[in-house]
């Protein structure tokens, strides 16, 4: 671990005001903002392996201290989230010094991750592990016929207790008012929520934004396969529009620009 931190220190030297890290203290993982003048502390820190919605904290820090320069370690999914959020002006990448972190094999498998590496970052620590070929759950769902699919989702969403954990942990959710709490769309107090509102609504909003970090699924107390649902929609975005959220800083979701005739010709 310490060599990762050493590397981070080296790279960020003189370029940052503080580090934001998830550290382990007394067996508990916590995010910590370490100012540069307390940098020596880093040497005594133990990095946590826990996946943590760090990006949301970056957003908050940048909102409060827009000029603060922050150094952080990012996994592939976190880097994608930062890229995607910067397209929505929620993150200022210029103020961040990023060191990538390749995910270990066990993390890759646990997350069923397709892209476990922060591609495009100059400095990455750790060995690149290949992502999985395909999300097995999604393959299974795709094999169902249309009425079975609905039944499958219905049986999953029946377990929902409407804790909003999926939304709260999502790095891409930054709306000040959430469609899931709009009484015109989702009946307030109805548990479980009836189809197609709630989950399908959220899924639509995630398409072309979701970076497939899977925190939603990890945090879901009902074990609903949300990552596979959002992944299925991202696949549509890729097939139809060639867009993969978080993969390229210069491309934008087709839903946030009008485009030229050539962008829609294949759709008519």
């Amino acid at each position: 671990m310490s060599d990762i931190l050493q590397k981070l220190k080296e790279i960020a030297d003189g370029k940052v005001d503080a580090f934001l890290l998830v550290v382990q203290e007394d067996g508990v993982s916590l995010p910590q903002l370490i100012p540069i003048d307390e940098m020596d502390q880093i040497d005594h820190k133990e990095l946590s392996d826990l996946r943590y919605p760090l990006v949301k904290i970056v957003e908050e820090i940048q909102e409060r201290f827009p000029n603060a320069r922050i150094g952080l370690l990012v996994r592939g999914c976190e880097y994608r989230a930062l890229i995607e959020l910067s397209k929505y002006s929620q993150i200022n990448l210029d103020k961040l010094v990023l060191v990538g972190r390749a995910c270990e094999r066990n993390t890759v498998e646990k997350c069923a991750c397709l892209y476990p590496y922060p591609y495009g970052l100059e400095n990455v620590v750790g060995e690149e592990n290949p992502g999985i070929e395909a999300d097995p759950k999604l393959v299974e769902i795709e094999g169902l016929d249309v009425s079975e699919k609905l039944r499958y989702w219905a049986s999953q969403f029946e377990k929902c207790i409407k804790c909003y954990g999926c939304r709260n942990i999502c790095p891409l959710c930054y709306c000040k008012e959430c469609s899931l709490e709009n009484p015109g769309l989702v009946v307030p107090g109805e548990v479980p929520p009836t189809l197609p509102a709630f989950h399908f609504l959220r899924a639509l909003d995630m398409a072309g934004r979701c970076v497939e970090c899977g925190l939603c699924e990890e945090v879901c107390p009902a074990g609903i396969p949300l990552r596979s649902l959002y992944r299925a929609l991202n696949k549509i975005m890729e097939d139809q529009f060639g867009y993969k959220p978080g993969h390229n800083l210069d491309e934008r979701s087709p839903f946030i620009f009008l485009g030229e005739t050539s962008d829609v010709e294949h759709l008519i």
Binding site: S89, E177, I256
Partner: peptide, 8 residues
């Protein structure tokens, strides 16, 4: 009050 400034 609802705008997050995403500029879409």
């Amino acid at each position: 009050e609802l705008c997050s400034g995403c500029r879409a």
